[in-house]
Design a protein around this nucleic acid. Structure first.
Length: 435
RNA sequence: GCACUUCAGAGCAGC
């Protein structure tokens, strides 16, 4: 690493940016996440005060962000701040983008302002989109007003981010009013705006309105693209109308568009949801024969429909197949399995899967624990349920009211009123409010 | 120069 860093300084001096990035990227790939502490120490001990040092630090931050090693990037940025090296706005933008789902995003924005770095339109857009993705619509709108007050002329992308925020929270009508406001101000929708609104209409269950909107779009000179079709197909799936899908597929093909992985996943999910697992499997096979590389989401669609039918063992087989293909199960995949076992009453297996998940450092959440507790209560395993709760609070998890309610209900159903009252007192002591 | 906005998966109690 030492010689690589020396090489980096040389490249920086010669202005060979691209090579510098490549060399660093390769090194980060080898060192992996968690290596920032070590690399920073090397830089500090061996290259302090060297010319172009600031540039090397900055690109190190940026390459960590690009390699999805976000916390390493933050670490390097922090060290840079100590050394009074300044980062450029694009480095900040990329890092904020990686962290747009978290509070850290806004902290970084404040840091930018306090250091006198000038935010650009990308920055504003990332903040607004991030706030929307965190479901903080009011904050997003407030931020929007704030930058307008500072004299920033918002771009269409910012409006699109807001449209998307409203739509995904189910406020299509608000999105529609925003659209008419946009038109009044001379902002004309692009394909992103149209697709976003069509999506909003679809998830609100308004397929008809979505179709009308597609026509509007075409009248305004935009051809429906693959995203539009996928969005419409997904709308059909949500409304339980997947049997109508063929009409759209036909139209798609006539327009020279071919289904992609997302299209197939929507179709499989739709058919499975409607109880037609056979058709789902047929499409699945068609997909494989077409040479598509299945991903975690495609698998989870099938896993969940198997579990819903109580075929958890089948699901487990598929799960193993998935891992053998080199796909890393994520939180949702584990949820599906755990939930499946709980509903079947096989709590031991559920907990086993949960342990495997935890050993992979995947965070659990309260929903999942609720599912496990409910499974225990349904089988009358009250002492196990209480142990589980104790175990959760020992691990520092704040038990919420629903978790208490589940176990209280369990006590009541087994006729143990004492136990129920005991828990009730406990939740009051914990400062919770009964619902 | 790169980077921002649109499409697919699961999910807890009681009533």
């Amino acid at each position: 690493a030492l010689s690589v860093l020396a090489e980096c300084h040389r490249l920086a001096k010669e202005g060979q940016w691209k090579e510098l990035r490549q060399v660093l990227r390769r090194m980060l790939n080898e060192e992996g996440s968690g290596s920032s502490c070590y690399l920073c120490e090397l830089l500090w001990n061996n290259f302090r005060g060297k010319e172009y040092g600031g540039l090397v630090w900055e690109i190190l931050t940026d390459e960590y962000s690009r390699s999805q090693m976000t916390y390493d990037a933050l670490y390097v940025l922090d060290k840079m701040n100590n050394l009074k090296h300044q980062s450029s706005i694009s480095t900040y933008n990329r890092l904020m983008y990686s962290l747009r789902h978290t509070d850290i995003m806004l902290n970084l924005y404040k840091e930018i302002l306090s250091k006198g770095v000038l935010p650009n339109l990308y920055t504003y857009c990332i903040v607004i989109d991030g706030l929307c993705k965190q479901h903080r619509l009011q904050d997003a709108v407030a931020f929007f007003e704030e930058i307008k007050g500072k004299g920033v002329r918002p771009c269409l992308v910012i409006f699109n981010a807001l449209l998307s925020g409203f739509c995904s929270m189910g406020f299509v009508n608000v999105a529609m009013s925003l659209l008419s406001m946009m038109l009044k101000c001379g902002y004309f929708p692009d394909i992103y705006s149209y697709n976003t609104l069509i999506h909003g209409l679809c998830i609100a269950g308004s397929i008809e309105r979505a179709l009308d909107f597609c026509e509007d779009m075409e009248r305004n000179g935009f051809a429906l693209d693959l995203v539009t079709y996928n969005t419409m197909l997904n709308g059909l799936r949500i409304s339980g109308l997947i049997s109508e899908a063929w009409k759209f597929i036909q139209r798609m093909l006539l327009n020279g568009l071919f289904p992609n992985l997302i299209t197939y996943t929507i179709l499989i999910s739709g058919h499975c949801q409607g109880g037609n697992i056979e058709e789902g499997m047929r499409i699945w096979k068609e997909m494989i024969s077409q040479g598509y590389q299945l991903n975690v989401i495609t698998y989870s669609v099938l896993l969940s429909s198997l579990c819903k039918r109580g075929l958890v063992d089948e699901a487990m087989k598929l799960f193993n197949e998935m891992e053998a293909m080199g796909l890393d199960p994520d939180f949702i995949v584990y949820c599906i399995l755990i939930h499946g076992y709980c509903k079947k009453g096989d709590i031991e297996r559920a907990i086993d899967v949960c342990k495997v998940m935890c050993s992979k450092k995947i965070m659990t959440n309260s929903f999942l624990h609720g599912s496990i507790l409910l499974g225990m209560c349904k089988k009358g395993m009250m002492s196990k349920a209480v142990d589980y709760m104790d175990h959760l609070s020992r691990d520092g998890l704040l038990l919420d009211i629903v978790l208490y309610n589940i176990v209280i209900d369990g006590y009541v159903k087994t006729g143990d009123i004492e136990g129920a009252i005991g828990l009730y007192k406990q939740l009051l002591e914990a400062g919770l409010t009964p619902s």
